[in-house]
Design a protein around this nucleic acid. Structure first.
Length: 607
DNA sequence: TGTGTCTGCCC
DNA sequence: ATTCTGC
DNA sequence: GCAGAATGGGCAGACACA
């Protein structure tokens, strides 16, 4: 280990090294040797920074400041100081906010004042904690002050952290590989690290468990981590397959089948506050250092906590779920569920459920949009960790829990042949659900893992149930990162309106194209560029593209659903598409053969 | 007090 | 969320 | 096949500003 404190300059230099390397294995080794030179605390901080954060995901610590704010700040600064740089244009050209800031910093002649990693980290926390009236201005001055004290290279990575755009090809999974390398020089600790992170999704804390330790000691420290109701577990995720036939090849037969609801993932925790307090959980000690307020003093005997898929605490948003959980006779548990609006005996669409994701007027909202939690798994019950048990056994245990009013046991069926699977799938689609989830009978609840033991079959898998529309391209957007090399990040699609002989933009399409397609799209669109918005094109304000294009090229888009858009409802029937993806570019069709507004309205009404 | 812009989080 | 690509 | 990075619609909240 080094004697001196690590500087932010050293951090930016290692970031630069990493950025130039494509091989993740190589990056892993380089980063691991860098970590070995750091103190434990520096390693923890670096881990958060690599994830574009200052604290774990479940700790409320967002910058609320991103590219657009930064660009407008720099433009103001350049104007005031008469510096010759057009920030937005450079960003469009470079495709990266970090490179833009580096250029800006070079033009300003800023030089490094040698800030330490700790100082940079404190500055980042300062941005996070700045809120309320005038906060944008205050954040601006913190950031400007920082930029003036950084070299262009430091500035580049500093703003990339704020914008969450590090783009090294490293996320928490690769960081766990890095940690394994730090201890043993290979990936053999990865399983222990995965397990630990799955029940304690704090990358900094996980690092502190293994820092400066030999193998035995590190493994022991990871194994000591236990599931603790009140602290979220990473939800298990599902994989998709290409066909129904593939399902049983993956899960084996028989398998368990459950409905797939279109709502919000919700992990329901119940525990007695005395248990939480008495365990003196080491994690609590660690987080309290930063004055985060995650573990407030418990006021009740029984505590309920609800967490989203990304571990955000949403307890206050769903009081009826919390009440029902409280009413269950079991003293402690962790349930996995999908929460969705439910009124007059019917489940409500996703957009309605989303309105419950709110901070204010929860009482009114819960009257208008009552929710129900459909419970499909149990991870912990009456003091006992169940995640190592087979899914079949956990589901059986779950079925014996008496659910309250706003909670309902999710139906689970055992299925062993394709016909029954298809039948259940169709039944669920007819009930209006998204499809089904198929699960292998055996196997643990693996926190945070997405593999083929759990599979989703969505109705959009079937040709007859997916929405396919032909849109006319009326514009495109500059991309970011690797997309900026192509000059196109996404395209704007429009419907044809035969009554006006015009085109009405309804949605952007940014996925589904291969690199090769992207190149040919750019080439083709370049020949059709229009100075401004073409006369015969209508477009909602928030869809306006960077570059307008004369409406000629027709492309086919698939979508899971046609959705109702609020505002500017005269354009495109006020409709849009959910999860739009390109399936075919440059259809051999003239633009007035594209899907018509009236046709999309009909499709929407038919569903 | 209302409106527009931006951000973060759901899917 | 969906999709593509490098390893 | 994994891991990461591109990208989507649409919701509420936080601010700035008129």
């Amino acid at each position: 280990m080094k004697n001196s404190k690590t500087t932010f300059k050293e951090i930016s230099e290692i970031f630069q090294t990493i950025e130039e390397i494509a091989s993740r294995n190589e990056i892993t080794e380089i980063l691991a040797s860098f970590y070995r030179e750091l103190t434990s605390e520096e390693g923890e901080i670096l881990s958060y920074l690599i994830l574009g954060r200052v604290a774990p995901f479940f700790v409320n610590s967002e910058f609320n400041y991103s590219e657009k704010s930064l660009i407008s700040l720099l433009e103001k600064y350049a104007k005031a100081k008469d510096i010759d740089i057009r920030v937005q244009q450079e960003r469009d050209r470079l495709g990266d906010i970090g490179d833009t800031v580096k250029l800006f910093s070079e033009k300003c002649g800023f030089v490094s004042k040698g800030a330490s990693l700790f100082e940079a980290y404190d500055t980042l926390w300062g941005i996070v904690k700045t809120e309320g009236n005038g906060s944008v201005e205050r954040k601006n001055s913190i950031i400007l002050g920082a930029l003036e004290s950084f070299s262009p290279l430091e500035a580049k990575y500093f703003v990339r952290v704020i914008c969450g755009q590090l783009r090294f090809g490293i996320s928490f999974k690769t960081l766990l590989d890095v940690f394994s390398f730090v201890v043993v020089g290979d990936k053999s600790l990865r399983l222990d690290l995965d397990r630990a992170y799955g029940i304690c999704a704090d990358i900094g804390y996980i690092y502190s468990c293994i820092a400066q330790k030999a193998r035995m000691e590190a493994v022991e420290s990871l194994k000591n981590l236990k599931i603790q109701p009140g602290i979220p577990v990473m939800p298990r995720l599902v994989e998709r397959v290409g066909s129904f036939e593939e399902t049983f090849e993956r899960t084996g037969s028989p398998a368990l089948v459950q409905p797939k609801f279109d709502g919000l993932r919700c992990q329901i925790h119940k525990y007695e506050s005395k248990d939480f307090e008495h365990r003196e959980y080491i994690w609590k000690k660690y987080l309290s250092r930063k004055d985060i307020g995650l573990f407030e003093q418990a006021s009740n005997d029984v505590e309920i906590k609800l967490f989203t898929r990304n571990l955000e605490d949403v307890t206050e948003m769903f009081p009826e779920i919390a009440e029902s959980a409280k009413a269950i006779s079991d003293k402690s548990f962790i349930l996995d569920s999908e929460v969705l609006g439910f009124k007059d005996g019917k489940f409500l669409p996703f957009q309605d459920t989303m309105q419950r994701r709110r901070k204010y007027s929860i009482g009114d909202a819960s009257k208008n949009i009552p929710v129900k939690g459909m419970v499909f798994d149990v991870l912990f019950l009456n003091g006992k960790d169940l995640i190592e048990q087979d899914t079949q056994k956990r589901v059986e245990t779950l079925s014996k829990i008496e659910m309250g009013e706003s909670l309902e046991l999710c139906e689970t069926k055992e299925v062993s042949d394709l016909d029954s699977l298809m039948q259940i799938f169709h039944e669920n689609v007819e009930k209006g659900y998204e499809g089904v989830i198929v699960k292998m009978l055996s196997g643990e609840y693996l926190p945070g893992v997405r593999n083929y033991d759990w599979i989703k079959l969505k109705k959009s898998m079937m040709n007859t149930l997916v929405d396919t529309v032909d849109l006319v391209c009326v514009g495109y957007y500059y991309g970011s990162g690797r997309r900026s090399d192509f000059g196109v990040g996404a395209i704007l699609g429009a419907l044809y309106n035969e009554k006006t002989d015009g085109y009405e933009a309804i949605c952007k399409v940014g996925t589904g194209f291969s690199d090769e397609q992207l190149r040919s799209i750019k080439g083709q669109l370049e020949t059709k560029i229009e100075e401004g918005q073409p006369q015969n094109v209508l477009c909602p304000e928030n869809l306006k593209p960077d570059i307008w294009v004369y409406p000629e090229v027709v492309f086919t888009v698939e979508a899971d659903e046609i959705t109702k858009r609020l505002g500017e409802e005269n354009i495109g029937g006020g409709l849009s598409l959910r999860f739009p993806r390109l399936v075919e570019w440059n259809r051999d069709k003239s633009s007035n053969d594209a899907t018509r507004v009236s046709e999309l309205i009909k499709m929407f009404e038919m569903k």
